[in-house]
């Protein structure tokens, strides 16, 4: 399933280089210029973290770095905002399950 827009009357989305990120041990295709959040959502992954005490699933909410709904463990660093972090080749991404401990 691709959620990438193929045709648009006004905007153009030039195909950028495909790169690989590793989400919870699984390789996913992302595009250069994606944020971690846009790459995951394009791959159909909507749950980005668990809430801290009730462990309810949380997804993207603001997409501009204001809320904390998309905090993930990115390259081992917890509390990283998936919505403003650009993807890079081989980046590891995990759902955050707790408050996040510094490595």
């Amino acid at each position: 399933m691709s959620r990438r827009i193929q045709e648009h009357p006004i905007l153009e989305f030039p195909r950028t280089k495909e790169i690989t990120i590793v989400f919870e041990g699984r390789e996913l295709v992302a595009h250069e210029g994606d944020t971690v959040a846009s790459a995951l959502i394009a791959n159909g992954i909507d749950v980005l973290r668990d809430s801290m005490s009730l462990h309810r699933p949380r997804g993207l909410f603001c997409a501009i770095g204001n809320c904390s709904s998309c905090l993930m463990v990115i390259n081992g660093v917890p509390n990283t905002r998936a919505c403003v972090t650009p993807v890079s080749q081989g980046m590891t991404v995990e759902r955050q399950r707790d408050k996040g401990m510094m490595p």
Partner: peptide, 16 residues
Amino acid sequence: MGAGAVQTLMNEYGVL
């Protein structure tokens, strides 16, 4: 989601 988040995803990153 916030309406702005939907706009950001679809109009900046081309993802619905």
